[in-house]
Amino acid sequence: METFIVGVLLSFLVIIAIGIIVLRDLLAAVILLGVYSLIAAGAFVVMDAVDVAFTEAAVGAGISTILYLGALRFTTDRQKPRGHDSLPALLFVVLTGALLIYGTLDMPHYGSATSPAQTHEQVAVRFLEVSGDEVGPPNIVTSVLASYRGYDTLGETVVVFAAGIAVMSLLGLRRRRPQQDISDDERAES
């Protein structure tokens, strides 16, 4: 049953992705990206990746829509008409896609017990067995992220910080003074 639900959700993802590519209206594309993250989070939940799903739910549905809309406000919500579809470009894209799909053939199957992540030096087994006594939290994802791989998470936090600084320096950091109080309706009707 889970496999069936994941399959249906993933095919929804493909449909949405094609829709996003085809649509010229960028606002519609942003709205569809919201659906994309909804479906992705649903699929993650069914695949048991709860923390990933949580991140997708929190970021994809609300914040990323707002950031995309902010970006649209700076530009325009119509995509420029394409010049011409060049055949070599299409061939190149199809070839790259085929190569990528060929690459996935080597990957372990979903949920496979013999995938390298499970078998390599018994890391996963060790985390599952020992982390309760070594670190404590019942949620092993938390203990891996915050304790075993604390350096990584420190780096990620710094990346988020740096990204925030970068965007703010692009958008401008100027302070602004408070406005006089004019009701919006009055202003619109004046």
Partner: peptide, 23 residues
Amino acid sequence: IFAVELGVGVTVTGVMISLFYGF
């Protein structure tokens, strides 16, 4: 873990709010 998660949370809150204000 408590302190570290708190740090992550505070940074992410600050960044998201700043981005919103900036945009």
